[in-house]
Amino acid sequence: MELEVKNKTITLNGKVVNNLDRFVLDLVKILEKYTDYVIVSGYVAIFFGRSRATEDIDIIIKKSDMKSFLEEVTANGYWIINTPDIDHAIELLDDNERIRISKDGQMVPNVEIKYPEDESDSFSLKNKIKINFDGNYLFFSPLEIQIAYKLKLGQGGNQKDIEDAVHLFKVFKGKIDTKKLKDFIEDLSVHSIAKKYFGEIYDQV
């Protein structure tokens, strides 16, 4: 695996772009014309090789006037699953609801778009990292918070999230900021589950 991590950029060349990657790339190409975005949760682990697909890609966007985006996206082969009415979709976002967008006539995969709901969402948006791959790019949440947050979700009972956390930790072992990861683990109170799966970071002097 050839992977370069430098400051807030990760470069991964030679990856075969699959249909899920293509779906995400095509949609964010429109989205980024209108607002800042960051991809969080399962797709981050999938992008970096987790051997599973997903029905949705979670995207946090900066609060903006989303009318033009929704007009362009619906005029270009996509539909808003929640509502056929663009103004209603904007109301949903403003009410801190999420909206789902998929290709016309399809339900999956879809992107679930929302404004930041809490401090961790705002942190991810503000501190997003750029993923470069063969002339393409996407913005992801910092891996340290992703791993800790996935543990938090896993602590709630979802084994898939623990698996995603283990996958990301293993892929980026030695390349992520261990201190930052430990801090997020403390912030999210997932110390005991982290010790179970990433005990080695607590053994380091």
Binding site: M1, E2, L3, L12, N13, G14, K15, V16, V17, N18, N19, L20, R22, F23, I46, G49, S51, R52, A53, V108, P109, V171
Partner: peptide, 23 residues
């Protein structure tokens, strides 16, 4: 993944994902 090229693991992953998600 670490022992093999990006092309190797990602083409296996692509086969798995593309079987579930059509273009």
């Amino acid at each position: 993944m670490k022992e093999n090229s990006n092309k190797d693991w990602s083409s296996q992953q692509a086969r798995l994902i593309n079987a579930q998600i059509k273009e």
